[in-house]
């Protein structure tokens, strides 16, 4: 009997070890953990006290794996400090997709930081994102510049007036002596119909009143957009989806910035 038990335990361990055995497409035990925290640690070391921070902004890698591989090759030729993968990392929010994306993105020679998109919330995507990348609202400060990552996927929460979390955003933008300038990074721009439009004014007002923000980075629309829609000098830059084979490379120095489009 005990021999049988040993055999059963052995079989279960073997089966568990074989990655072909999937319990459900929505299983959440993703292979990679806390990637944003690890990336931020690397960024802090590499940027250190450089005058200029060089950021690559992309989004909507969903189901464009071949194109994403080409992006990684192209980005590795640039002298950038890190990449923002600004939402819709996946198409269906399943664990396999999250892992496929990271298996490609880990070939980058520089770190990347992921932001949650509406597609990433499908199925159990929210839980997988939290395990794999960390909190949906997050921030980090390098060289006295604060980058604020924000969940703006209001439609996914039935426009419950809580997404984006405005009070958290205001708190992050409140002056303290850790940063001089800030950039907000989120998937859906506030002028899009998938943004909770009851919070559009509050979002814009939070950025304006802080007097710290010159740039708001987005994706979601699948086409490039450069706009200053609220006549307040705050520029909203929307990256294309990966099938458009374009990314933005943004140089930030003090309260100044410049950007260019790169096609690959």
């Amino acid at each position: 009997m005990s021999q049988n038990k040993v055999a059963i335990v052995g079989i279960v361990v073997l089966l568990g070890a074989c990655s072909l055995f999937e319990y459900h497409p929505y299983e959440t035990n993703v292979a990679y953990r806390n990637l944003n925290a690890k990336a931020i640690e690397r960024i802090a070391k590499s940027v250190n006290d450089k005058d200029t921070i060089t950021v690559i902004s992309i989004g909507d890698s969903q189901r464009f794996y071949d194109e994403l591989e080409d992006f990684v090759q192209s980005a590795n030729q640039q002298r950038a400090d890190f990449v923002f993968l600004n939402g819709d990392i996946t198409d269906f929010g399943i664990k396999d997709e999250y892992e496929w994306i990271h298996d490609i993105m880990k070939k980058l020679t520089i770190p990347y930081v992921a932001v949650i998109g509406n597609h990433d919330l499908s199925g159990n995507g929210e839980e997988i994102f939290e395990k794999m990348y960390g909190p949906l609202n997050n921030y980090f400060v390098v060289n006295r510049h604060k980058f604020i990552l924000l969940n703006t996927n209001g439609r996914e929460y039935h426009f419950n007036k809580k997404i984006p979390d405005i009070s958290w955003l205001q708190e992050q933008l409140t002056s303290n002596d850790t940063f001089d300038h800030a950039t907000v990074v989120s998937h859906i721009p506030p002028f899009d119909s998938d943004f909770d439009l009851s919070l559009e004014h509050d979002y814009v007002a939070a950025l304006q009143s802080s007097e710290k923000v010159k740039l708001s980075l987005h994706a979601h629309k699948h086409t490039f957009k450069d706009t200053i829609p609220y006549s307040d000098g705050i520029r909203y830059l929307v990256s294309t989806s990966m099938d458009e084979r374009m990314y933005l490379i943004i140089k930030i120095y003090g309260d100044q910035y410049e950007y260019k489009k790169v096609y690959f």
């Binding site: 189901r63 794996y65 591989e69 198409d91």
Partner: peptide, 12 residues
């Protein structure tokens, strides 16, 4: 959903 992902990305 996995099949459609593969069909469009036979390289990656």
């Amino acid at each position: 959903i996995k099949l459609v992902s593969y069909i469009q990305n036979s390289d990656a």
